[in-house]
Design a protein around this nucleic acid. Structure first.
Length: 283
DNA sequence: CACCATGTTCCTTG
DNA sequence: CCAAGGAACATGGT
């Protein structure tokens, strides 16, 4: 469930459930999730800490920690990879399949589930170094985007998915933002005109904001126990079926008519990733 | 059985 | 140095 909007919604969901709680007991069921630390070392670092805040940077969840006795403060970073989920359940409730890590907090357990195990938890602050700007912040102006894009000849879709260039966009919302902006995904970045960069900035922000707003209004299945795939409004993720008008405009819609011009949506591959676009609307 | 999948990193080739 | 392609990671869905 992992692009900026999904992480942001998850952060908002977890914050009131975790802030102020003390981590009593940490259980690592899949050691890979806490690499390169060993499970005991990881658990020891976390146990006793109080969670003072939950935030987000790019696609990372940031758990601000206060050491139990004023010591070892710091921050736990979580990444969902491709299939990671996090939820809070009653202590004693049986774990779902593919549970990687559990933090016992007294009456509740915080659970990290990750079938493909591409995600993980770390205390390594270096993971945040060099990340591009947050696209939803006011500071993300057209000038900033232009500077970040630079004069690269890389396809613009590949470029905006680079987390060092811009934080938070993944394969779905990159396609969506480019469709909104009317820009073909394979365009060399350096060929974009000023107007197009302005539109791209707008598209990125609108697409992300809309996704967050939509996700915030749905009954979401954070634990993934409903059999959904975890992407909130991708597929039939929750018991609340995503309405047709809330589905993506291009992503995973090859062959279907473009919502604005009826031309069939096309699929191509860029940097090994499926890319969807409308040949007529996007130049 | 085949192919695809929201992400990231490393390696090779041109 | 840059850009592109492929593979790897591990599991599930169609």
């Amino acid at each position: 469930m992992p692009e900026l909007p999904e992480v942001e919604i998850l952060v908002r969901h977890l914050r009131p459930l975790l802030v102020g709680k003390q981590v009593r007991e940490v259980t690592v069921l899949r050691p890979k999730a806490v690499r390169p630390l060993s499970a005991p070392v990881f658990a020891e670092q976390l146990e006793g800490a109080e969670i003072a805040g939950v935030g987000r940077r790019a696609k990372y969840l940031c758990f601000e920690l206060i050491g139990s006795r004023g010591s070892k403060p710091g921050r736990l970073l979580g990444h969902l990879g491709m299939t990671g989920r996090m939820s809070v359940q009653a202590a004693g409730e049986p774990y779902a399949r593919h549970v990687s890590v559990v933090m016992g907090m007294g009456a509740e357990d915080w659970v990290f589930v990750d079938p493909r195990q591409f995600g993980g938890l770390t205390f390594d602050e270096q993971r945040l170094e060099g990340l591009g700007p947050e696209p939803l912040e006011d500071a993300f102006t057209e000038a900033v985007l232009r500077e970040r894009l630079g004069s690269s000849q890389q396809a613009v879709k590949v470029r905006i998915m680079d987390q060092q260039v811009l934080a938070g966009l993944g394969n779905i919302y990159a396609s969506e933002a480019l469709h909104w902006a009317g820009i073909a995904p394979h365009r060399p970045t350096g060929s974009l005109k000023s107007v197009e960069i302005a539109r791209l900035r707008e598209g990125i922000r609108r697409v992300l904001e809309t996704a967050i707003r939509t996700g915030a209004s749905l009954a979401l299945d954070f634990a993934g126990s409903g059999g959904g795939d975890g992407l909130f409004y991708y597929g039939r993720a929750t018991e609340a079926p995503a309405s047709a008008e809330e589905r993506f405009r291009v992503y995973d819609r090859a062959g279907q008519p473009c919502g604005t011009c009826q031309e069939p949506i096309e699929r191509s591959v860029l940097a090994g990733r499926s890319t969807y676009f409308c040949r007529r609307c996007q130049r």
